[in-house]
Structures are given as C-alpha cells and as structure tokens.
Simulated assay, not measured.
Amino acid sequence: MISNAEIFNIKTTSEFEDLALKVFKFQFENNAVYRSFCDLLYKHPADVKDILDIPFLPIQFFKSHEVISSKTEAEKIFTSSGTTGNATSNHLVTDITLYEESYTNGFSHFYGNIEDYVVLALLPSYLERDGSSLIYMVNDLITKSKQPESGFYLNNLDDLAHTLNQLEARKQKTLLIGVSFALLDLVEQFTFNLNHTIIMETGGMKGRRKEIIRQELHHIFQSGFGVDNIHSEYGMTELLSQAYSNGNGIFECPPWMKILTRDTEDALTIQLPNKTGGVNVIDLANLNSCSFIATQDLGKIYDNGQFEIIGRFDNSDIRGCNLMAL
C-alpha cells in the first residue's frame, strides 16, 4: 500500500516518476472506471515503463461516473459549481487526510508556516453553495493560522478593508485569497498600500462580471492594493493538490504534482515543453481517486517545469476552481 509519507516526501524527479508508476499500477488494479479506460487504449502496467506512457482520464468522467480507487466509503464528496443545465463533477474522497496534508504541505512549500499569516478569504460564490473543495481548504488554513483576525468575508467589504489596514499598520503578514469579481468589488470601493499582504486570486468572474485578460486584471489589482505582484492558485474539484503563482500567471507545482501538455489534435500524444496544448495533471495525492487527469484547460509548460494557463477548449463548459479564459 502507498503511504501518505511516500507522496509528501518526494525529493527528486526519479522519486516522483517511480511513485507515479506505482500509483498507476495501484489505480489500474483498483479503479474500475480507470481500468476500463486503460483497457480501451490497450494500456496495462506491463506496457507502461515511463510516465509519458500513462493514460490520462478525461476530466468529464467525474460528471458521469464514480471515479474511485478504494472500496472505502467516501468521507467527503466535493462538487464543482457548474452552470445552469450542466452536470457537475463529483469527487469522492475516501481519505480526507490526503487532501489536508496536500494543501498544508503545499502552502508550506511555497509560503512557509501558515501560523505566520492572518488568512482572509473573500470567496462569496463558493460560500453560497455546498461541496466546495476550495472552501474546505481555506477554512482549514484559517483554523491552522491560529490568528484571531483570520476569517471569511461575504459582502462586508467595509469590515475587510478596515481589517486589512489594521494588519498593515502593525506589519502583520497576511494572505487575502479571493475570487476575482469580489476582489474587483473591493478595489473599486477602497484603495490600499499593502506591503505585508499577499493578494491571491482564484476562480475568475463566475458569471458576475465580464471576463478580462489576466494582464489587465492583475494591473487593476496591483494598482488598487498597492502591491507589486498578484499571486494565483490553480486547483480544481477533481484534484487534491494545487499549483501556485507568485506573479505573471506563471505557476509551479509542489513535488508530488506535475503538469504535462497533450497535442490538441491527438489527445494521446504528450508534447515537448514550450508548446501550447491540453493540460494533463499528475496529482499523486489523488491516490484513492485518479492521479492522471486530462483537463479541458489549455496551457504551456516551460523547460524548468513551470507552466501557464492559456485558456480553455472551446467546447468545454465553465466550472468551479478554475482560472478565467485568457
């Protein structure tokens, strides 16, 4: 059996690749949906010697099937927001500790100890529904911060602005994570000069505002919050790990997560870096579901493993926990 420690103590590329092959074999043997998909492609563990040979399950399967690699009953079911008339994704999580360790270790990897931060969340569209994996993560980070000022804000922007200015006055490290349309609402009403706060956007406009390109959006935020860079979080309902950007829309994965791109005309062909293609994700924390997912995002990977999201496939619906089309 693969342990949490194996996943979150990966140090090298070879360790990642060895564990990815081990996870593939485990999920091939224990995930009926993924096994059927691999069978259709004639891809079995004996044929897979490299991570580039691993089949990536189309993300749409989470809308029509129970994608699970465990006989254990789900502890938590995360759901995507979806749009009116469209089916939502369901992610059955049988071991919530994997998710908790993933986002806790991921935050620590990029930002340090969560207890050093006040965590402020401006995520109204997520708070207004049940089953959001983002709300679960942020709520737990708020708790783990152990800071009395940490918390969620819905429509009380006056209180949020007051808190941000108070924290800035005492030079307190702060993380403000917000959905894009709500952050725009905030900077349209208030202007800040924040030297001790990370502004992290996620989730796009959610139909509340017209989509605008990332560069224009970040320029508005930089001016309104008085910061040099806008951070971003890249995650989705169907995953248990997140990538982060500390500016310019360039993301980096934690050691147990990797992004590849596939040819837009041939979904089974993995591309070399520096070409735009469909985004495939390896998320080894997603052990009891599926760790190899073909998303409907378009992106580009660079030689150093960092990546950016370019947009979405034209025929894909808009769903939660995803960046805006650029």
Rank of each mutant, 00 (worst) to 15 (best):
I142D: 02
F181I: 03
G131H: 01
I135G: 00
F107V: 12
L127I: 12
I96F: 01
S133D: 09
T174H: 12
L127K: 13
L92R: 14
G85E: 05
S80W: 02
I177C: 13
L127P: 02
L160A: 06
E128F: 01
F78K: 00
Q147M: 15
N156P: 04
T72C: 10
N139H: 14
Y103H: 14
N139E: 14
L176T: 07
S145Y: 10
S69G: 12
L164T: 08
Y126S: 15
D158K: 15
E100F: 04
N155T: 14
N165G: 09
M137C: 09
G82Y: 04
K76Q: 13
F78Y: 12
L183A: 14
F110Q: 01
A74H: 10
E168I: 08
T79Y: 05
Y99W: 12
K171Y: 08
K71R: 12
T72V: 14
A182H: 09
H65Q: 14
S102M: 10
S89N: 02
H91A: 06
S180Q: 07
S125D: 07
R170W: 05
L98W: 12
I96W: 04
D159T: 13
V118G: 02
G131N: 06
E168S: 12
V67Q: 11
T84R: 08
L134P: 06
E115G: 01
G82S: 00
E73I: 11
F181A: 06
R129V: 02
S125C: 05
T84E: 03
L183S: 10
N165D: 12
S125N: 11
S133P: 07
L183R: 00
Y126Q: 12
G85N: 07
E149S: 14
I142H: 07
G82V: 01
S132D: 01
I96E: 11
I135V: 15
G85L: 03
N156D: 15
